[in-house]
Design a binder for these strands. Structure first.
Length: 301
DNA sequence: CTCCAGGGATGAT
DNA sequence: ATCATCCATGGA
């Protein structure tokens, strides 16, 4: 195996891959295996050094955005308690540059799903419809192109545990495959124009559009508001307010977090998700078993 | 078992 | 314009 070694200061590979922006990298040996576009990659980190196989330096630097001026970006965050905690916790976390379609498709499937399950759906789509590759003695699968998904039936996609999301993924895949939705060409659009195009796609609303803008189009001010971020805004920024509407959160975040709001958002998201006590609710008194609901008679699978 | 998850589309106020 | 409901699935 041919390895290349490069310097990558101010970067935390494991945290970046675990921060809920990409969903397919798997732990392998001392590092991870996955794909960057069609290229299978093995990559590991030792201190400030990255060792990788399967791609070239330019591909790695671009995908992991090693050129982003992370210190300056972090210094641009607003100076408040929640942001300072997140910034300290997320040192080395970078916003990657993902392929347009792969990112869009992944976030269409993300609706009302935990990160762990989005990973599961991504793997299922790859294994069933992607191209098999080998790297570091392991098999990896590329994310299926829009044209390949467009050939699938809704039932095939549902077999990847997509549920109601299958219909949206299929419809958007057809638009992308036909060229009616030309994702690459949209790179030249301004933020509002790009957001408008994305939101016109089936299964894409403001939240998914902002994720795709941030993670695939390098729009670093895009600020996705999911249930975690909404909770952070309510609890850390407006603890007195009785209720905050989507509109109020949007107005605040767009004006408060600045030109790199997307980075700030990702730091707040990752910090909240990794530190919020996930303790099972305190021994809630349980109903005794004699009130058990009558079960439907067993149905065949 | 219950609760919840990187929401969106639709129809009713 | 805001609000309620439904949509599937599996981890915790």
């Amino acid at each position: 195996m041919e390895f290349t070694e490069i310097s990558a200061p101010e970067f935390d590979l494991a945290m970046t891959l675990d921060s809920g922006q990409t969903f397919h990298w798997l732990a392998a040996d001392e590092g991870f295996v996955g794909t960057i576009g069609e290229t299978p990659i093995y990559i590991e980190q030792r201190g400030d050094q990255l060792r990788f196989a399967g791609g070239d330096e330019q591909l790695i630097r671009h995908y992991f955005a090693l050129d982003h001026p992370l210190a300056k970006i972090c210094a641009s965050f607003p100076d408040d308690a929640a942001m300072s905690e997140a910034r300290a916790f997320c040192r080395g976390l970078r916003i990657m540059r993902q392929p347009h379609w792969e990112c869009l498709a992944s976030f269409i499937t993300s609706s009302m799903k935990q990160v762990a399950h989005i990973r599961q759906m991504s793997q299922a789509l790859r294994r069933n419809f992607g191209e098999r590759k080998e790297i570091a003695g392991r098999e990896v699968f590329t994310f299926p192109a829009a044209a390949r998904i467009a050939q699938c039936s809704e039932a095939e996609l549902r077999r990847c545990a997509l549920g109601y999301r299958a219909k949206n993924l299929l419809a958007t895949a057809r638009l992308a495959a036909s060229g009616e939705a030309h994702l690459a060409a949209w790179s030249v659009l301004g933020d509002s124009g790009l957001r408008e195009r994305l939101c016109a796609l089936p299964g894409v609303g403001a939240k998914v559009a902002n994720c795709v803008m941030l993670f695939a189009y390098e729009r670093l001010s895009a600020f996705p508001i999911d249930v975690w971020i909404a909770r952070v805004l309510r609890e850390r920024y407006f603890p007195r307010r009785r209720k905050m509407t989507e509109r109020q959160m949007r107005t605040f975040s767009d004006s408060y977090f600045g030109a790199h709001g997307g980075y700030a958002q990702q730091y707040l998201f990752h910090h909240a998700r990794k530190t919020t006590a996930r303790t099972v609710k305190r021994s809630r008194p349980r109903k005794t078993a004699n009130e058990k609901q009558p079960r439907l008679s067993e149905v065949g699978s």
